[in-house]
Design a protein around this nucleic acid. Sequence first.
DNA 1: GGCCGTGTTGTGACCGCTCACAATCCTCGC
DNA 2: GCGAGGATTGTGAGCGGTCACAACACGGCC
Lengths: 356, 356
Amino acid sequence: MVVTGHTSSGGPADPQGSQQKPASIRDVAQAAGVSYQTVSRVINDHPNVKEETRRRVEEAIEALGFRRNATAFALASGVTKTVTVLTSNTVLYGYAATLQGLEEAARAAGYSVGVRVLTPEDDLDRTIATAAAAGGGLVVIGFDRLGAAALDRVPSNVPCAAAVEAPPPGRTPPRPAVWVDDRTASRAATEYLLDLGHETVHYVAIPASTGSRRSAAPRAEGWRQALVAAGVTPPPPTGKGWDAQAGYDAGRKLARDPGVTAILCGNDDLALGVLRALHHAGRSVPGDVSVIGFDDAPHSQFITPALTTVRLDFQGLGRSAFGLLRGQLESDFQPPEPTLAGPELVRRESTGSRDA
Amino acid sequence: MVVTGHTSSGGPADPQGSQQKPASIRDVAQAAGVSYQTVSRVINDHPNVKEETRRRVEEAIEALGFRRNATAFALASGVTKTVTVLTSNTVLYGYAATLQGLEEAARAAGYSVGVRVLTPEDDLDRTIATAAAAGGGLVVIGFDRLGAAALDRVPSNVPCAAAVEAPPPGRTPPRPAVWVDDRTASRAATEYLLDLGHETVHYVAIPASTGSRRSAAPRAEGWRQALVAAGVTPPPPTGKGWDAQAGYDAGRKLARDPGVTAILCGNDDLALGVLRALHHAGRSVPGDVSVIGFDDAPHSQFITPALTTVRLDFQGLGRSAFGLLRGQLESDFQPPEPTLAGPELVRRESTGSRDA
DNA sequence: GGCCGTGTTGTGACCGCTCACAATCCTCGC
DNA sequence: GCGAGGATTGTGAGCGGTCACAACACGGCC
C-alpha cells in the first residue's frame, strides 16, 4: 500500500527549458535602444524621462519579462527590505499569531520576512550573525528564555526590535520592544476568581523568560499581587512547560488536593491539560473547580467546557514589533504608537462561583 | 491603566554607534597584509593557502569581526541558499507543522527560509515574481485552492517544489511534489466506523484544493469509496471552511438528524466544532455519535472526549518538500526518497460501537 | 645552470544594479 | 542668432564578493 508519494520531473539536470537566465537591465536597454541607466530610471520612477522613451522601455520590459534582480538591488543600494524573525517556536499559538501579524504588516510595507528558529543546541551568536548578514533587520520573539537570550546578544549595530513577555527592567532600555500588560490582566483574572468566592487561586506557570528575577514573569506576578492584596498567601506555582502535557501533569497533582477550587494557567494549552486532568480525577469544571487560561487560542471557545481566558492581541504585537523595526530601517519612517488591543478577560464556561 | 507598552531608544538617527559598517574582505586583506583574493580563499577553504598565511588572515577576520556579506555572495556566485514558502496560512495546524518541518530541514542544510502569505486579494503572478526575484527556490503549500492556483502559475524556469493535498492528475507532472495518501487513510477511517456498526458515515469536508474534479479531494474520495464498497449510498458532505466555527455550523445541522451516528471530519478543528455542536444538542459522544478527525493536532488528545483522528506527518511532508527543492537547486544533490510516516488512525475516545 | 611542475599569491573582469557626474538636447529670453 | 538653464541621456565608478588567469616562488630533474 502506498502511504505517501511524490513526483519529481526527471533527474537533476533538466533537459529543456529552465536554462535561459532572466533579462537584465542591459538586455532591456539594448532592446529599447537606450542606455542601461535610462532603464534604471524607468524602473525607479525617476521624473526626468521623456514620455516616449519611457514607453519604449516599458514595452521592452514587458516583452522580455524583466524583473529587477533583488539581490543586485540590495547590494548596490544598500537597502534590504527584509526582516528576519528569530523565534524558538513557530507552532504554539502565541508565537504563530505574533508571526502572522508581523508577516502581514511586513508584506503591506513591501518587506519580505524570513524565519529562523532558535534551538538550545546551536550557537546563538553564530545564528544571529548569520541572520544579520542577510541584511535587513531582526525581530526577536522573546517570550521565552531562549528568545530573551538571543535578544541580549544582538550586536548594537544591527537594527532590531522585539516582542517580549515583560517590559525590560528600567535601567538601559536595550532595544525597542513591545509587550502587553499581562501582569494587570493576570491580576484582574485572579481577582475575578476571588470575587467568585474562591478562597485562593492556584497558578500553573509557563516557563519564565528570564533568570530568577521573579518580577519579570508578569503573569505570575499579577496573580501573586492579587492574592496578597486579598490577604491570602500565594500557594507555590506549579508547571514546567508550555504544552497541554505539562498542564496535564500539573493538573493531576492539583486535582488530588480538595482545597484547590480555582486554577489560573499561564496559557490555554496548559489550561486544556489541566481540564483534562481534572476530568480524569472526576472533578467537574466549573462545578468543583474553576479554570482560567491565557491567550484565547482559537480552539479555546470550542472545547467543553468553553474556556474562560485572557485574550491577548498577538497579531497586534507582531504588527507593532515590525513598526518599531521599520522605524530604525527607514530614517523617515516614524513608527506609529503601537495600537494593539488590551488584554481582555473573556468569561466562558470554565469558571463559576465557589458555592454554585 | 496601561494595557500595553513599548520602548524605543531615542529618535531614528542613533547618535552613537550603529554607524560603522561591517568589514569587507578588502579590509581584512589589508589588515592581514595580503590580497583580497587570498582572504576569499581562506573563507572558502581553498586548499592552496600557506598555513601561516591562513592563520594571519583568520586572525584578521576574528579581529575585525568579519562576516561574509550574504548579498554580495549571492550576486557574485549565483547561489542563493534561500527557500521561500508560499502559503495561504501559517497558523492552522497542518500548515504550521509543514512549515516547521521545512524550516528544520532547511536550517540543517544551511538555507534560510522566507515566508510569504498568499491572499485572494493580491495578484498571484506578481507575488510569485517577487518571491522568485529573491533568488533561491520556492516551496508552495498547495493544500487549498489558493495554494494550488499559485503552484500552477509558477513559471517553469524557477526552481519549485510543492506539498499538496493530492497527487497531481496523471498527465504532465507539473512540479515535483509530495503528498500523503490520505485517501487510503480516509477510507480506512470510514471502514473503522462501519465496522463499529454504524450504518452510514457523514462527512464534514474541508474546502477542496481544486475546482470541481471530485477525485482530487482525497479525503472525501476515500470516505465515498468505503461507503460505496459497503453498499451504502454516501450522504451529501457538508462543511464550508477550515476552522472550528465551520465545524460547529455543520455539526448543528447534523445533530438534528437522529440518523446521524458517525461523522468523519476533514480536520481536527472541524471535529472540535462538531463535538461542540453535538454537546449543545445534547447528543453524547461516543454514546450517541462517533466522531473522527484528521491531522492529529497537538490538542486533540487532550480534549474531552479525546479525539479519534488520523495522524498525518506534516513535518515529514515539509522536510520532503524541501528535499525535492534542494535537488533542483544543487545539481549534485540527490533528494532522498521521501521518508515520512504514513497516515495512522489513532483510536481514542470519540468513537464507539453503534450499539454500545 | 636552465627547465619544468607545483604551490602560492595577485590582478582583472564581472555579477546586476545604483550612485555621481558629465554630456547632450531643447527651449526660452533678449 | 546666441547664451543660459533645465530636461534628458549617457558614462564611469563602485557595492562585496566570485571566477579565470597570470605572475611569482620554490624544489627537483637533467
